[in-house]
């Protein structure tokens, strides 16, 4: 009986989740009257603005990932190794973007870095791109930090660091040859999550007036019928691809050695 209730709840939940997706996908294929076709997808892919905004967002995502990795991995490593008492503080800081809306962040940025400020980043396109990358990094921080911290927890970083030091390695070698390879899978998980967040992000890009994929989605949604559904399916596909890649790379992680036999 309990099993039946559990299955019913599961199926109901799945239907609530899947039905809108099925409906949306079905609608995205219905551009041509009476038959299913990929016309909406063809229309989207043929749009030069789609290619431009998508490329822009992919490039921004890559920069965000690189900056995020350079910021988060050494921080999480150092906090675990040398300042474990600070861990709750750092965790709290990394959680802040979850409770502070993106609109607050972007207004703060605009106020701090406008053309009449001491660091007028919004004065140039490149400066605004850099600002946008910082914003994306902040939004992805909770996911990237958690992924990396979990990866670090799985290995005995203190002893591995000391072992490498006793073998003559300096901090750069330890970080590049010992720590990073052992948390690589965790970093990749964080990277894919960052990618998924950046690709669909609207608020920061729109208010900083950058040609990103998120505002393009909104623009198409406001002006066309079938194409927005096709774009939403493409976005879902990208997100799910990222999730699938996380699962695949998780299997490639270096296995922790046995402690005693």
């Amino acid at each position: 009986m309990k099993r039946a209730i559990a299955w019913t709840a599961f199926l109901l939940g799945s239907l609530i989740f899947i039905l809108p997706l099925v409906g949306m996908t079905e609608f995205s294929l219905s551009m041509r009257r009476g038959v299913y076709s990929f016309d909406a997808y063809a229309s989207v892919l043929a749009d030069p603005q789609f290619r431009e905004t998508f490329t822009y967002s992919v490039v921004m995502a890559l920069f965000t990932i690189v900056f995020g990795v350079l910021l988060v991995v050494p921080t999480a490593y150092w906090v675990r190794l040398k300042m474990p008492a600070l861990r709750p503080v750092v965790e709290f800081i990394t959680l802040m973007p979850l409770v502070i809306p993106a609109i607050v962040i972007v207004f703060g940025y605009i106020r701090l870095y406008n053309t009449s400020s001491w660091l007028p980043l919004t004065g140039t396109a490149m400066g605004t791109n850099v600002l946008l990358m910082f914003g994306y990094t902040a939004l992805a921080l909770p996911y990237m930090y958690r992924a990396v911290d979990t990866g670090l927890r799985a290995i005995d970083i203190a002893t591995l660091t000391e072992a490498a030091q006793s073998l003559g390695a300096g901090w750069t070698t330890i970080f590049a040859k010992v720590i990073l390879p052992n948390v690589f899978v965790a970093v990749l998980s964080g990277a894919f999550l960052t990618f998924a967040i950046v690709i669909g992000e609207f608020t920061l890009a729109a208010l900083l007036n950058r040609p990103a994929f998120g505002p393009y989605l909104q623009l198409v949604g406001a002006n066309k019928a079938y194409e927005p559904s096709a774009l939403a399916v493409i976005s879902f596909g990208i997100t799910w691809l990222c999730m699938g890649l996380i699962q695949i790379v998780a299997r490639l992680a270096p296995k922790p050695p046995a402690q005693s036999h």
């Binding site: 290995i155 005995d156 002893t159 591995l160 000391e162 072992a163 490498a164 030091q165 006793s166 073998l167 003559g168 390695a169 300096g170 040859k177 010992v178 390879p181 052992n182 690589f184 270096p254 296995k255 922790p256 050695p257 402690q259």
Partner: peptide, 20 residues
């Protein structure tokens, strides 16, 4: 002197082999 400048070999209780 820093540990990496001492030319001392060390073996740990937890082995500390690099898993990768």
């Amino acid at each position: 002197l820093k540990p990496n400048q001492r030319n001392i070999g060390m073996v740990f209780q937890a082995y500390a082999l690099f898993p990768n």
